[in-house]
Amino acid sequence: MEFVVLVKQVPDTTEVKVDPKTGTLIRDGVPSILNPFDQFALEEALRLREKIKDRIPVNVTVISMGPPQAKTAIMKCLALGADKGILLSDRTFAGADTWATSLTLAEAVKKLGKFDIVFCGQQAIDGDTAQVGPEVAQLLGIPQVTYVDSILGFENNKITVRSLTDDGYRVVEVKLPMLLTCSTPSSFEPSNPSMAAILKANKKPFEIWTAETLGGDKSKFGLSGSPTQVSRVYSPPVRGKGVVYKENIEEGIKKVVEALMDKKVI
């Protein structure tokens, strides 16, 4: 059985700082990490493989699209236990929006041949769109379940999962092949593989696929294949600084309540 995990290397947005003078993003020195949602998706795939290994042997392939340095994210996946890594890397792929990204990833999954479950994180922390999973599912023509926080059962070519909704959850059963996007439980802390696992990962198969490998018309990839265009990027407007009461708190509270009454907020 073939599991495919789609991952992305992202800047650690919690480490992004804004230049207080210019208001622009300081990108230098921001560490790149494996998108935490994707790491959780990989771990879910590995857990399921472990659970069913006596009945069904499973191969776990990780696919990522990104610049050459995104290999680091794939190597981490291999060290965590994936069997094979494929990096889709080509200048032609650059500037892709969610549609062009999904198309490229879907073509790579198709090229692998057989796939039974495609695992994705619910979203990447740099873009937060949550679109690539469902778009890949549509392009592969397979059903999807989004916001899955646990896999409840697996038998007879069917998977049962728990999928989060706005006010609770649903238990959903789907026949394979299918795609699921994983929501991390709030207790999830991305772990780092051991040194021994990292060394072992270096011996696992890793390939770089280009636009040539995927074939077809190159204009469907990257910026030229993207329906959306970013016309401008700018700093968010800063909210004017308010009044802060540090001493004489009682007086401060009185003033605040007065202001709230004046403004008819309460």
């Binding site: 769109t129 690539v132 909704t165 706005d166 329906p227």
Partner: peptide, 23 residues
Amino acid sequence: ATKVGRDLAPRVAASLGLGLTAD
């Protein structure tokens, strides 16, 4: 951009080859 909207909109976008801007 509810759970339902985020499940549905990209599926529709992908079947028609459309751009979709989230949130």
